[in-house]
Write a protein that binds this DNA or RNA. Structure first.
Lengths: 339, 339
DNA sequence: TTGAAAGCGCTAACAC
DNA sequence: GTGTTAGCGCTTTCAA
């Protein structure tokens, strides 16, 4: 590869010292107008660009924000990332994105790699496996070092830190209210195992709504999906018993879409026989038949906020500290044909 | 923020020199067993991790691959990224992902930023705006410098470089053949404007298939979607004329899903009245009603190959050069209910 | 107005 | 077996 020009080569070429070049390039008044012009012209001509590594090392500042997400093929996370990118970009930060693949070990590796000088701050959505284990030592270590770090969406329970979350509980509550308002009384829910905090919160909100209304969910109408087993089969149980629900809330978009398809295959009409509502920030809900009513999560917003928070922390490293914040992104109902 | 331990502090603490520490940490036989043990124990205790910035500067090697994509919310690109990550990860490379947002200027900014020392190689899928403009000077400059760079999916036409592409033409051809094999004769196509090379190639293959069969596409059955206008309206034109197609090929998943919904709204039965086939690597096709037959793109594969190629280039910078390669990722038909 | 020197954190050639 | 030195590319005192 052809070597890129650097300050030293420019200096040699022009018969001046590196420090002169450095100053001239920043238009310093220390340097004579003529020298400045010569240096700048030369730099432009050879398309000189300062080496970011050297700058980072020198300034102890990389202008990079690290992002660790469990899966990049989850549409919600890509929305968050585009939100993060939007804010980061405005403030001249770049992104280093790593995938934990929902694995504890990979998450630790990612963190170690990113915090060895590569980034100024970290945005993390925790891996499922980590959440299951309940092991948060790797986060606590960073927090103790006062390394700028903001958690989003999947947060470590019981740990003091900056966090950005969706108001999952309220979302679930609103989903419940909506189904009730449509006159549905035999409600069902498709949810996730215990350790998926967001699923649990959505479920909690849903139950709060229906309990307020004095309605109950039959145990067999509560399906907690285990992804290692066949998902279709698990969902199908909702429709193969003597009784069946007339309104179903699914804690994510895929489960809702699958459930709608399965219900239709079983001969149910949506929304006449069964109404469906999903929880999502995806593209699917507009393309199902019928289109799906959802609780919109606003991932882009969440990304914006998370990026703002971490950049604020980065700046505050030197100055006074503000206490940890938790920003709540509120959801709203997007009503479509499925209710 | 608490300062991280570095070699110098360890050296001072242990009363030895930095180079001794450095060597001891790599278990060098130059250093006495006892000193080695002391140093390693201390390093472990204080959780010492070498600063990657310093290492990169020193070694002139960052172990980072830059990736520039137009949009992260396009599911296809996230599949590619996960493929890239898979290979990169195995070879100890990390990813720096930037979004061009399909803008020429942002693409240039991204490239400048990434090539100023931050990454060892670059993976690029070109922005639409750049493709429209036909301006590829920023790529040619890098290529001339022999900077390791591999294009994927959206490639610069007429430029010598490493490339990974989907066999779009063959995919389109197979889509055409499939519709014909189902006895469809009045074929329609939902496509993209000229400058979107992948769309054009898919269309070209489609036409080749039907011309071989002596069939023609009526001009009014060829819809080129302009995304700035209402997409639904443009698609709807296919179904509101005297005649209507009995088989439709859409060059991407969203258009296909939209078209299916609109056709059904117009009272057509799928696949009886109209068969549909899409081009995709997404999650939607499994969730539409009916499920959608597609030409699968294997984005993950594409990511694997692209990463392999760029890493190969990185290693070959010092050694002999191999000529530029173009890897073609072949598609295959996934038949579902819509045909 | 310009330049020499030191240092960000690390390593490797070369002393001792 | 251990230490000194120089240098990756850059900036910033401080001296000239």
């Amino acid at each position: 590869m052809h070597k890129k020009v650097n300050i030293k080569t420019i200096a040699a070429e022009l018969g001046v010292s590196p420090s002169t070049v450095s100053k001239a390039l920043k238009d310093s008044h220390e340097i004579g107008v003529e020298t400045r012009a010569r240096v700048q012209a030369f730099a432009k001509m050879y398309n000189y660009k300062p080496n970011s590594l050297a700058l980072s090392l020198r300034n102890q500042k990389t202008m990079v924000i690290g992002v660790i997400i469990p899966q990049i093929t989850h549409h919600f996370f890509t929305r968050v990332i585009s939100g993060i990118e939007f804010v980061a970009n405005q403030k001249d930060y770049n992104l280093m994105i790593c995938l934990s693949k929902d694995e504890y070990e990979k998450e630790i590796q990612n963190i170690e790699m990113l915090t060895n000088g590569s980034v100024d701050g970290l945005l993390i959505s925790i891996a499922n496996e980590t959440l299951e284990k309940g092991e948060f030592g790797h986060f606590e270590r960073l927090l103790n070092q006062e390394f700028p770090i903001v958690f989003f969406d999947r947060i470590p329970p019981g740990i003091q830190a900056d966090k950005v979350i969706v108001d999952d509980e309220a979302g679930g509550y609103n989903a419940g209210k909506l189904l009730l308002s449509k006159g549905r009384k035999k409600l069902g829910i498709i949810s996730t195992p215990e350790h998926v905090t967001v699923g649990v919160l959505r479920e909690k909100g849903f139950y709060r709504a229906i309990q307020e209304a004095g309605v109950e969910v039959l145990p067999q109408f509560n399906v907690k999906i285990e992804e290692k087993f066949d998902i279709d089969n698990q969902i199908d149980q909702l429709f193969t018993q003597k009784e069946f629900p007339d309104g179903i809330f699914a804690v994510n978009e895929t489960y809702a879409a699958l459930a709608m398809k399965i219900a239709q295959k079983r001969g149910f009409h949506i929304p006449r026989d069964i109404a469906f509502i999903g929880f999502t920030d995806g593209v699917i809900s507009r393309l199902t038949t019928p289109t799906m009513t959802t609780i919109a999560q606003h991932g882009h917003n969440m990304g914006n906020k998370a990026a703002e928070l971490v950049i604020q922390r980065i700046y505050e490293q030197e100055n006074d500290k503000t206490p940890y914040q938790t920003v709540v992104i509120s959801t709203n109902i997007v009503e479509r044909e499925s209710t």
